[in-house]
């Protein structure tokens, strides 16, 4: 009886967990062969450019539904640039959560949001 009750409880918890849509944000970075030194500011977090480019994808736990996503580039050589991914354009949502693509460029505009 106790085991059956525990099974049902676990089943219910699993069903609730499975019935929620994920709101994770994955940012897919496309970098030049030799990424510059510096930092990226994304979704309120600061990350090292070269580390982020090695990972290619940065994952964040949540994204505010349908808000645009801004990426700020702060290169060590003083170059600063920003790009914004708009929801429905470069920022998309699929059944696994939110996704955006940013390209880091060696020439102006240095960073841009891209469509899939």
């Amino acid at each position: 009886m106790k085991a059956a009750r525990s099974f049902l409880l676990v089943l219910c918890l699993l069903l609730v967990a499975c019935s929620e849509e994920p709101a994770t944000l994955q940012v897919h970075l496309r970098c030049p062969a030799n990424p510059p030194a510096g930092t990226l500011v994304l979704n309120g977090e600061t990350v090292d450019i070269q580390t982020a480019c090695r990972k290619q994808t940065l994952t964040f736990d949540t994204h505010s539904a349908n808000e645009p996503l801004q990426l700020k580039l702060r290169r060590a050589d003083g170059v600063q640039a920003e790009a914004t991914a708009a929801y429905g354009e470069e920022l998309q949502r699929d059944r696994h959560g939110f996704h955006a693509i940013f390209e880091l460029l060696t020439e102006p505009p240095y960073v841009r949001a891209a469509r899939l």
């Binding site: 897919h28 290619q56 998309q92 899939l116």
Partner: peptide
């Protein structure tokens, strides 16, 4: 085809494939 892929939840794998082949 890209639209169907994203409909099916393939954004991450398609983006990674584009990066790997250098064709977006």
């Amino acid at each position: 085809k890209f639209g169907i892929a994203v409909y099916h939840g393939m954004f991450a794998s398609v983006s990674a494939a584009q990066t790997a082949v250098g064709d977006s």
